[in-house]
């Protein structure tokens, strides 16, 4: 059968000590010449690609998140999976975004203030996108709190910020730094348009009036908050 205790935590207990040991090993290894060479390679890699990965991850997060919310595209099973992908890719995207900022600041390409203060430049757009995404991430983490609170609707209003932050991030990615290849630009434009269209469809679907068929079937469907009894009484 299934011997796994069900109240086992999501992150196993051994993870933190192991992670601490690995971190110490990395700190020690970095001081050796081969370690220094490896870090140099990692640094050049992150300088070049952390931003790109963050942007790609963000795009994936946007698309998968949109798909997971809507019931017309996927079955339940895949929507649940899509939610997991949405969370995982957003986590990875945020990690790469933070790496992007840290590495750029450490390399002297930007000052710490540039990461958060908006100015009407390519760099400033990135800062704006970062600020907005930070807020979106916080709302994402607090989703269960909103669901339990008095105004669950507020969550959606706040999380919708991502639809503004993402295009800003894309514009930053295309204008700042090295010249993007043509297909990259087109790829981003295509995903922008796709998400835009999907969003439009969704808004149209959600805003339309309540399903008249369902209304006719259940004229007195319960519209109050209650703890449901196991015997839903039907007459």
């Amino acid at each position: 059968m299934n011997p796994r205790p069900m109240d086992e935590p999501v992150t196993p207990k051994w993870l933190l000590p192991v992670l601490a040991n690995v971190a110490i090993a990395v700190l020690a290894g970095t001081a050796t010449p081969p370690g220094a060479a490896a870090v140099a390679a990692a640094q050049s890699f992150l300088l070049l690609y952390a931003g790109v990965f963050a942007l790609v991850g963000m795009s994936l997060t946007m698309i998968v998140g949109l798909v997971a919310t809507d019931r017309s595209l996927l079955g339940i099973r895949h929507r649940v999976l899509a939610q997991a992908v949405h969370r995982a890719s957003s986590m990875a995207a945020m990690a790469f975004l933070v790496a992007h900022l840290v590495v750029k600041i450490l390399a002297g390409h930007a000052r710490a203030a540039d990461a958060v203060v908006f100015r009407p430049t390519a760099l400033g757009l990135g800062a704006l996108a970062f600020d907005l995404l930070l807020m979106v991430m916080i709302t994402g983490l607090l989703r269960a709190w909103f669901a339990a609170g008095t105004r669950p609707g507020l969550w959606r209003t706040l999380h919708v910020i991502s639809y503004f932050a993402w295009p800003v991030a894309i514009v930053h990615g295309l204008t700042a730094g090295r010249q993007a290849a043509g297909w990259v630009t087109w790829g981003y434009v295509l995903s922008l348009v796709t998400v835009g269209l999907a969003l439009l469809t969704r808004v149209l679907l959600v805003v339309r009036p309540v399903d008249p068929v369902r209304e006719a079937l259940e004229p007195d469907s319960p519209r109050r908050e209650t703890s449901v009894r196991p015997t839903a009484v039907r007459r």
Binding site: R71, I76, G153, E225
Partner: peptide, 10 residues
């Protein structure tokens, strides 16, 4: 518990 005003039967 279920908030019936919000539940959309997903």
């Amino acid at each position: 518990t279920i908030d019936w005003a919000r539940c959309a039967g997903h």
